[in-house]
C-alpha cells in the first residue's frame, strides 16, 4: 500500500478517538455515561443503531457472499422494516417511559429479580463471545491483506475502540458511530464507481445484466417454503421478523441506543430510519459484491483471494498440484472472458462453472494443507480487490471503512456489556447505594475488562473456525427465547414470575435441541424460541396461579 493510504488510516484512527472523547459530556454521572443524559437527536441515534448492526463481518462477508451467490442474502433483512414499526409502537415508548438503564431492568419490575438476572446473564454470555467474533473475523482478513499478525490487528482495532468507549461512554460510541457510518458508505460508493469504470466500455449494461443473471446472482427473492433453506422470502419475513424484534427489542446493545434519544418521539424516529434505509444500504453492499464478480469476469482474478495462502501453497510441498490448478484456472478464465465479450450466454455459463469448480479445488487444497476446515476464501474477495485495484487514497479509505465497521459494531456491544454488568449485577446485587462517581469508575473498569476479555476470545477464535460457528448458533437460540419472555411481560397481564422464568428455560432448551438435532435453518430458531417461551410461560402461569 502507498504511504498516502497509511496516512488516511492513521488519520482516521486518531480522528475517531479524539473526536469521540471531545463530544462526551456529563460522563461523570451514570445517566450521562450509559444514556448520554437522554440528549441525542433521532438521526444520530438512528445512524448509531445502523452502525452497531453493520459490522466488518457484514462489509467483508456480505460482499464476498454476493460475489459467490448474488443478491439472495437480502432476504435476511425482509422482516426488519415490520419489526421496526412494531417496536416503535410497543417497546420503544415502554422502555423510554419506564426510565430504565437496561432492557432487563424491566423484567424485574414485571416479574422478579431471578428472571431479570437470567435474561441479563444470557445477554452477557452471548454478547461476550459475539464481541470476540466481531473483533476476530475482520482481524483475520485485515491481518492477511496488510501482512500483520492477527493479535496485532486485534489490538489495533480494539485499543482505540476501548479507549473512546471507556472514557466517553455511550455518547462517544454514538457520535463515532455517526462518523463511521459515513466513512463506510463513502468507501462503498467509491468502490462501486471504481468497479463500474473497470467494466470494458464495449460491454453494454444490458449484456452485463444478462451475464450476471445467467449465473443466478440476480435472483434475490425465493418464494419457496423450505424450512431447510437458510434464505427464502418466508424465512426472512417471518423468522427474520422475530430475530429483528428480539435483536432491536431485547438486546441491550440496541436498546441502549434508543434510550439515549431526547424523547420517545425521537427514539421512535431513530428506529424508523433503519426501516427506511437498511434494505437499500444492504442492497448497495450486495451490489458491490456482484460488481466485483463482473469486474473479475473481464480482469484476471487471483485463483485464491487470500494472497498469504496463495504464496504458502505455491511454495509448499503441494506446489506442483497447485501450479497445475493455476494453469487450468487461467485457461478457464480466458475462455470465460472471451464468451462474455462475445455475449455467448451458454459458453459463458459453462466456463463460469469451470472457474468456480477450480476455485473450489484450490480452497479444498488450502483446507487440507492448513487444517482449517472453516476456511472461506470469499471473505478475502473484497479486501483483495480493494488493495489491488482501488486508486491511492481510496484504498486507505476502504481499509479505514473496514476498521470503522469493526469498531462501531464492537463499541456498541462493549458499552452494552458494561451497562448490563454494572446495572443488572454490580448495582443490583453487590453495591446497592454508592455515588455516581463510583459507578462510573467501575463502569470504566468493566468496559476495559470486557474489552480485554474480547481480545483474548478474538485471538483464540481466529485459530478455531468451529468456535465461530458455535457462537453464531448460540446467538440464534437465545434471541428468540429472550423475545418470548418480553412478550410475556408486555403482551399479557396474567403471566407470573414463575411462568416467565421456567418458560425462558424451556425455550432455551427446545431451541438448543432443535438447533443441534434438526436441519431447520437458524432464522426459524427465533420464532420457535419465542413461541415456546410464550406458550410454556402462559401454561405455567395458569397452573401456578393461586385459585380464588
Amino acid at each position: 500500500m502507498h504511504a498516502i493510504d497509511w496516512l488516511v488510516i492513521v488519520a482516521y484512527l486518531v480522528w475517531i478517538v479524539t473526536d469521540g472523547l471531545r463530544r462526551s459530556h456529563r460522563t461523570n454521572e451514570v445517566a450521562g455515561y450509559f444514556l448520554a443524559g437522554r440528549s441525542l437527536p433521532w438521526w444520530a441515534v438512528g445512524l448509531s443503531v445502523m452502525a452497531t448492526q453493520l459490522s466488518a463481518i457484514t462489509l467483508v462477508g456480505t460482499t464476498g457472499q454476493a460475489y459467490a451467490t448474488g443478491f439472495r442474502f437480502i432476504q435476511f433483512y425482509l422482516g426488519l422494516p415490520l419489526a421496526m414499526i412494531i417496536l416503535s409502537l410497543t417497546v420503544v415508548p415502554f422502555f423510554h417511559r419506564a426510565g430504565v438503564y437496561t432492557a432487563y431492568e424491566y423484567l424485574e419490575r414485571r416479574f422478579d429479580v431471578r428472571t431479570r438476572t437470567l435474561a441479563s446473564l444470557l445477554f452477557l454470555l452471548g454478547r461476550t463471545f459475539s464481541l470476540g467474533v466481531v473483533l476476530a473475523a475482520p482481524s483475520v482478513v485485515i491481518s492477511s491483506i496488510l501482512g500483520w499478525s492477527v493479535p496485532l490487528t486485534v489490538i489495533i482495532i480494539a485499543v482505540p475502540m476501548v479507549l473512546y468507549t471507556a472514557f466517553g461512554g455511550v455518547q462517544a460510541v454514538a457520535w463515532t458511530d455517526v462518523k463511521q457510518i459515513f466513512v463506510i458508505v463513502t468507501g462503498v460508493c467509491a468502490a462501486v464507481v471504481v468497479l463500474a469504470l473497470g467494466i470494458p466500455s464495449e460491454v453494454s449494461i444490458g449484456r452485463t445484466l444478462d451475464l450476471v443473471g445467467a449465473t443466478g446472482r440476480l435472483r434475490a427473492i425465493d418464494f419457496r417454503f423450505d424450512l431447510r433453506e437458510t434464505y427464502t422470502f418466508w424465512s426472512g419475513l417471518i423468522g427474520g421478523l422475530f430475530l429483528m424484534l428480539s435483536y432491536f427489542g431485547c438486546d441491550q446493545s440496541q436498546v441502549q441506543r434508543y434510550l439515549t434519544a431526547k424523547s420517545v418521539e425521537e427514539a421512535r424516529h431513530s428506529l424508523l430510519l433503519s426501516a427506511y434505509v437498511k434494505i437499500p444500504l444492504q442492497l448497495l453492499i450486495l451490489a458491490t459484491g456482484v460488481l466485483v464478480f463482473v469486474f473479475y469476469v473481464f480482469q484476471p482474478p487471483p485463483m485464491l483471494f487470500n494472497r498469504v495462502h496463495d504464496r504458502e501453497i505455491a511454495s509448499g510441498p503441494r506446489a506442483a498440484e497447485y501450479d497445475a490448478l493455476q494453469r487450468r484456472f487461467d485457461a478457464a478464465f480466458a475462455e470465460r472472458k472471451t464468451a462474455a465479450e462475445a455475449g455467448d450466454r451458454n459458453a459463458f455459463l459453462d466456463h463460469d462453472r469451470r472457474v468456480a469448480a477450480i476455485r473450489g479445488e484450490a480452497v479444498a487444497l488450502v483446507r487440507e494443507a492448513t487444517g482449517d476446515r472453516q476456511y472461506a476464501d470469499v471473505n478475502y474477495v473484497f479486501p483483495t480487490f480493494v488493495t489491488t485495484h482501488m486508486p491511492i487514497g481510496l484504498t486507505g479509505l476502504l481499509i479505514a471503512a473496514m476498521f470503522a465497521a469493526a469498531m462501531s459494531a464492537a463499541a456498541g456491544e462493549l458499552s452494552a456489556l458494561a451497562s448490563a454488568t454494572i446495572i443488572d449485577f454490580y448495582r443490583r446485587h453487590f453495591v446497592k447505594s454508592a455515588t455516581d462517581a463510583h459507578y462510573v469508575n467501575v463502569s470504566k473498569l468493566a468496559t476495559v475488562g470486557w474489552g480485554l476479555f474480547a481480545c483474548v476470545v478474538a485471538m483464540s477464535a481466529s485459530n478455531q473456525g468451529s468456535l465461530i460457528e458455535v457462537v453464531n448458533r448460540y446467538g440464534s437460540f437465545f434471541y428468540g427465547s429472550l423475545l418470548g419472555v418480553f412478550m410475556l411481560g408486555i403482551l399479557t397481564t396474567t403471566a407470573t414470575a414463575v411462568g416467565a422464568f421456567y418458560g425462558l428455560v424451556a425455550g432455551m432448551a427446545v431451541v438448543l435441541v432443535v438447533a443441534f438435532t434438526t436441519s431447520i435453518a437458524f432464522l426459524w430458531h427465533n420464532l420457535i424460541g419465542a413461541v415456546v417461551v410464550f406458550a410454556v410461560g402462559m401454561a405455567i402461569s395458569r397452573a401456578s396461579r393461586p385459585h380464588s
Binding site: I85, G216, L218, I221, L272
Partner: peptide, 30 residues
C-alpha cells in the same frame, strides 16, 4: 404519542416495491 401511521404505510409500501422490483428483476435476467 405522535401518530406515525402515514410513515408506517410509506415504509411498508417502500418495502413491497423493493421486493417486487427485485423479484421482477431476477425473473427478467435469469
Amino acid at each position: 404519542m405522535e401518530d406515525l401511521s402515514a410513515t408506517y404505510v410509506k415504509i411498508l409500501l417502500l418495502e413491497a416495491a423493493i421486493i417486487l422490483a427485485l423479484w421482477l428483476f431476477g425473473r427478467m435476467y435469469s
